[in-house]
């Protein structure tokens, strides 16, 4: 584990959508520094730029100007395929809407990223079982998303994200579709992944209750970082 080492660095990152008069400046110059092992919550009202920031972090989008270094690699210089490979080997995604493949069993969903890595079948199966076990879904392997509750589906999605043992887990409002009790379970899970497995987690949320689980909370407003502070009241 490389706890404490550089993982992510933003230097004056801006993002402009559209052109000239119709343009919209989503990020106005973000400086950010995240080290391995952190648990960061990004908060802010709609339109504050937090989703854009997340897309850039996840290499799904590139900055208009400024530099994004991921483990000292300049992501802005990478091709579309290289960024896909970076996602494949170093990042895991959890979405608000789970985004599991329908009519496909939990274990097959979890195996998906390993397929793209070209892992052999038995290894894939073993790792997927282990990941499902970690998220507390032992015994649910053959259930399809339709047969699982929202909370369980999100656990499958988390298993899918961590099965590759990524450097960072990017979660975009992971509790947005869940009730409070279920949300807390998911947050407890993320928290334990961060503590026990040492996985770096960056999470967007607009619920202060959920952000409270993080070690560090960053507030965005109008495309800028408003506040960036360690969370003293970590649960």
């Amino acid at each position: 584990m490389n706890t404490g080492q550089h993982l992510i660095e933003f230097r004056g990152v801006t993002k402009v959508y559209g052109e000239r008069h119709a343009s919209m400046q989503a990020l106005r110059g973000i400086d950010l520094h995240i080290v391995e092992g952190e648990f960061v919550a990004i908060m802010g009202p709609s339109g504050s730029g937090k989703s854009t920031c997340m897309n850039i972090l996840g290499c799904l989008d590139t900055p208009t100007s400024g530099t994004y270094l991921f483990r000292d690699v300049d992501v802005g210089q990478l091709t579309r395929n290289q960024r896909a490979l970076l996602r494949r080997y170093y990042q895991g995604f959890v979405f608000q809407g789970y985004n599991l493949l329908n009519r496909t069993s939990a274990i097959e969903n979890v195996e998906l990223p390993l397929i793209y890595r070209g892992a052999p079948a038995h290894e894939r199966h073993e790792q997927a079982l282990r990941a499902l076990n970690t998220v507390g879904l032992k015994g649910w392997e053959s259930h399809t998303p339709g047969e699982l509750s929202g909370g369980q589906q999100q656990r499958v999605a988390i298993a899918r994200a961590i099965v590759t043992e990524p450097a960072v887990l990017l979660a975009d409002e992971p509790t947005g579709n869940l009730d409070t009790a279920r949300s807390r379970e998911i947050m407890e899970l993320l928290n334990s992944l961060n503590i026990k497995e040492g996985i770096t987690i960056i999470m967007i949320t607009h619920e202060p209750d959920m952000a409270a689980y993080a070690k560090r909370i960053i507030h965005f407003r109008d495309g800028l970082v408003e506040t960036d502070e360690q969370n003293g009241r970590t649960k």
């Binding site: 579309r80 494949r88 998906l112």
Partner: peptide, 16 residues
């Protein structure tokens, strides 16, 4: 489309 988005997000290349 969403499924394709998920596949691309978790590391599928265009070619995949």
């Amino acid at each position: 489309t969403r499924e394709i988005g998920v596949r691309l997000a978790i590391g599928a290349l265009e070619n995949d």
